[in-house]
Simulated assay, not measured.
Amino acid sequence: MSLPLTQAVRRELASLLRPTGEDLAPGTLGGVSGAAPLSYLPVFASVVVKIEADQERPEEFGRFRHRPRVLRVRGDLTVDVLPPVL
């Protein structure tokens, strides 16, 4: 879960994201106490984005301390060239 996307990033991602075909899934807004439940449409993990985060190695804590900010789509990268996420 990231901070809200800018309009420019939303427009670019709209044409790149592909739904998995699953129904809407239940979710929550992580880290926001009292946030109402929400639903989301699962998509294939096929797009790479550049993010800004408050810590370099979130795996040390199991999650980011604060939600990362999506800065831009990285059209020059594909998910198969990235290291696996633990």
Rank of each mutant, 00 (worst) to 15 (best):
R10D: 10
R11M: 13
R11Y: 10
L13F: 03
A14N: 09
S15C: 12
S15I: 05
S15D: 06
S15F: 08
L16W: 11
R18P: 04
P19V: 05
G21C: 04
E22H: 05
E22I: 04
L24H: 03
G27N: 05
G27W: 01
T28S: 13
G31V: 00
V32A: 07
S33V: 01
S33Y: 07
A36L: 09
A36K: 11
A36S: 11
P37V: 09
L38P: 04
Y40F: 08
L41F: 02
L41R: 12
V43D: 07
S46V: 02
V47N: 00
V49M: 06
V49D: 01
I51K: 14
I51P: 00
I51R: 14
I51A: 05
E52F: 05
E52T: 06
E52K: 09
E56A: 14
P58N: 09
E59L: 14
E60K: 13
F61Y: 13
F61E: 12
G62F: 02
G62V: 00
R63V: 08
F64Y: 14
R65K: 15
H66R: 15
H66F: 15
P68A: 15
P68W: 13
R69F: 01
V70T: 08
R74S: 02
R74V: 01
R74Q: 02
G75P: 01
G75D: 03
L77H: 05
L77D: 00
T78Y: 05
L82H: 12
L82K: 08
P83S: 08
P83E: 07
P84V: 03
L86K: 15
